[in-house]
Computed example of a mutant assay.
Amino acid sequence: MAVNTKRVFYVKYLAHQIYADILRARPDLRLDRLENESAEEMFAPVLAAAHVYQIGAARDELAPHFHVHAELLRRAPNLLIVSSNGAGFDPVDVEACTEAGVLVVNQSGGNAHSVAEHAIGMMLTLSKRIIEADRALRRDRDVNRNALMGTEAQGRTIGVVGIGNVGRRIAELCKGLLGMTVLAYDPYLSASDIAARGAQEVELDELLRRSDYVSINCPLTKESRGMIGAREFSLMQPHAYFITTARGFIHDEAALFEALRDKRIAGAGLDVWSKEPPPPEHPLLQFDNVLASPHTAGVTREARENMGRIAAEQILDALDGKRPPRVINPEVWPRYSARFAQIFGVIPA
């Protein structure tokens, strides 16, 4: 039977209050908030009635039973859409969603400027050895500045792994500000597409060998999990820096530790971790040439508001029967359309 009230829920928090403001302005929509600690008798009926699940919390901030897996989907028979706050969708089993006829969308591009600026900031901080100098001044007397000699990024080569919204912005900044050569590895784009984004297409091994800086900007998928390991670090130049603002598990933290310990690379800028936030005793945090942040590259006022707004607008468009612009699993559309028509009585565009 077709229904009129559209049900959306989230757990813990949203990217920005604007999301709730936009949705609550619609009289045909109800927005529910759950907590990680919500009792079964509270969250079970919300899951059962929900049409949309807006995931606001990061992977390690979200209770495991609220990750989108087969069991949650079984308990949410009316669920049509799973919407992830940022570009990543780690807490979502996309294959399980596709099998269940559930559309998965993200907010790709919503925080691209913020993440790109963070990556560039890490690159320059590492090059100029600013973090090492800061730590030396706080720890030692009579610091020898010549022992902290840095390098210029001007005219160097950066290798961008994944040249989507963030990678493209990094390419623009590096070429425009610093006259850098940009190499890119992205198996989902053609050479002409990559060239249009300001980079030269290369295979991953060549990118690692030639780059003075390697920036990881791809989503975490089955293909990218563990993509950068001991072999890949061994291909990098001894003066090169490794920077990632993508997702944990794309690079092997133990292999990176060994590469830094053995001075096979010059340093690393890490915004993402296998456990977030990492504990203070994490081995990688013991290196002075590691610049670390707790997955904050996309955490700016501007990015959060932008992501909240585009997430709300995308959900409303989808619930009004339009095709969302940021679909992760487009192959689900026929099954999703049939379920949408069954629940709401109209066939989506």
Rank of each mutant, 00 (worst) to 15 (best):
residue 11 V to N: 08
residue 164 G to I: 15
residue 139 R to G: 05
residue 316 L to D: 11
residue 210 R to P: 01
residue 98 T to V: 13
residue 290 V to T: 07
residue 21 D to R: 09
residue 20 A to S: 14
residue 43 F to W: 15
residue 18 I to W: 06
residue 251 H to A: 14
residue 124 L to D: 14
residue 259 A to G: 07
residue 130 I to Q: 14
residue 173 L to R: 07
residue 45 P to N: 07
residue 270 L to G: 10
residue 159 G to Q: 04
residue 126 L to G: 11
residue 99 E to H: 15
residue 106 N to R: 08
residue 343 I to Q: 02
residue 29 L to S: 02
residue 234 S to D: 12
residue 105 V to C: 12
residue 169 R to L: 13
residue 329 N to I: 08
residue 81 I to W: 00
residue 297 A to D: 08
residue 301 R to W: 03
residue 298 G to N: 01
residue 260 L to I: 02
residue 294 P to I: 04
residue 121 G to H: 09
residue 10 Y to V: 04
residue 23 L to M: 05
residue 255 A to P: 11
residue 323 R to W: 15
residue 63 A to P: 01
residue 77 P to K: 08
residue 204 L to A: 00
residue 76 A to G: 08
residue 307 M to G: 03
residue 68 V to F: 15
residue 269 G to H: 04
residue 82 V to C: 02
residue 114 S to C: 10
residue 245 T to P: 13
residue 339 R to E: 00
residue 247 R to S: 03
residue 283 P to C: 14
residue 31 L to Q: 14
residue 346 V to N: 03
residue 325 P to W: 00
residue 100 A to F: 15
residue 59 R to I: 03
residue 21 D to H: 06
residue 75 R to G: 06
residue 195 A to L: 09
residue 266 A to V: 06
residue 238 P to K: 07
residue 349 A to C: 06
residue 190 S to W: 11
residue 218 C to L: 13
residue 123 M to G: 10
residue 52 V to I: 12
residue 303 A to P: 13
residue 63 A to K: 04
residue 89 F to D: 09
residue 230 A to S: 05
residue 164 G to A: 09
residue 103 L to T: 05
residue 250 I to F: 14
residue 168 R to G: 09
residue 117 E to R: 11
residue 74 R to V: 00
residue 135 R to Y: 06
residue 27 P to F: 02
residue 96 A to D: 02
residue 183 L to V: 03
residue 308 G to K: 00
residue 166 V to N: 07
residue 164 G to V: 06
residue 227 M to P: 10
residue 340 F to E: 12
residue 217 N to E: 13
residue 330 P to L: 09
residue 125 T to G: 08
residue 99 E to L: 12
residue 152 E to Y: 07
residue 245 T to L: 12
residue 31 L to M: 11
residue 80 L to R: 13
residue 151 T to W: 03
residue 24 R to K: 05
residue 234 S to R: 09
residue 97 C to F: 10
residue 348 P to K: 00
residue 155 G to I: 07
residue 137 L to P: 11
residue 189 L to Q: 03
residue 246 A to P: 02
residue 347 I to H: 13
residue 68 V to G: 15
residue 153 A to E: 08
residue 252 D to Y: 05
residue 305 E to C: 14
residue 291 L to Q: 09
residue 45 P to R: 08
residue 278 P to V: 05
residue 151 T to M: 11
residue 133 A to L: 09
residue 294 P to Y: 10
residue 20 A to N: 14
residue 42 M to W: 12
residue 304 R to S: 07
residue 326 R to W: 06
residue 244 T to Y: 05
residue 196 A to P: 00
residue 192 S to I: 01
residue 280 P to E: 07
residue 111 N to V: 04
residue 10 Y to D: 14
residue 59 R to A: 02
residue 320 D to A: 15
residue 306 N to L: 03
residue 246 A to H: 11
residue 76 A to E: 01
residue 208 L to R: 11
residue 220 L to D: 08
residue 215 S to E: 11
residue 24 R to F: 03
residue 232 E to Y: 08
residue 191 A to P: 12
residue 333 W to N: 07
residue 72 L to I: 14
residue 44 A to E: 10
residue 186 D to C: 10
residue 56 G to E: 01
residue 194 I to V: 10
residue 329 N to K: 02
residue 241 Y to F: 04
residue 25 A to F: 00
residue 344 F to M: 00
residue 131 I to T: 10
residue 81 I to A: 06
residue 218 C to A: 11
residue 298 G to S: 12
residue 107 Q to A: 14
residue 92 V to D: 04
residue 202 V to H: 08
residue 231 R to D: 13
residue 214 V to K: 00
residue 33 R to D: 08
residue 278 P to I: 06
residue 206 E to W: 02
residue 159 G to H: 04
residue 60 D to T: 10
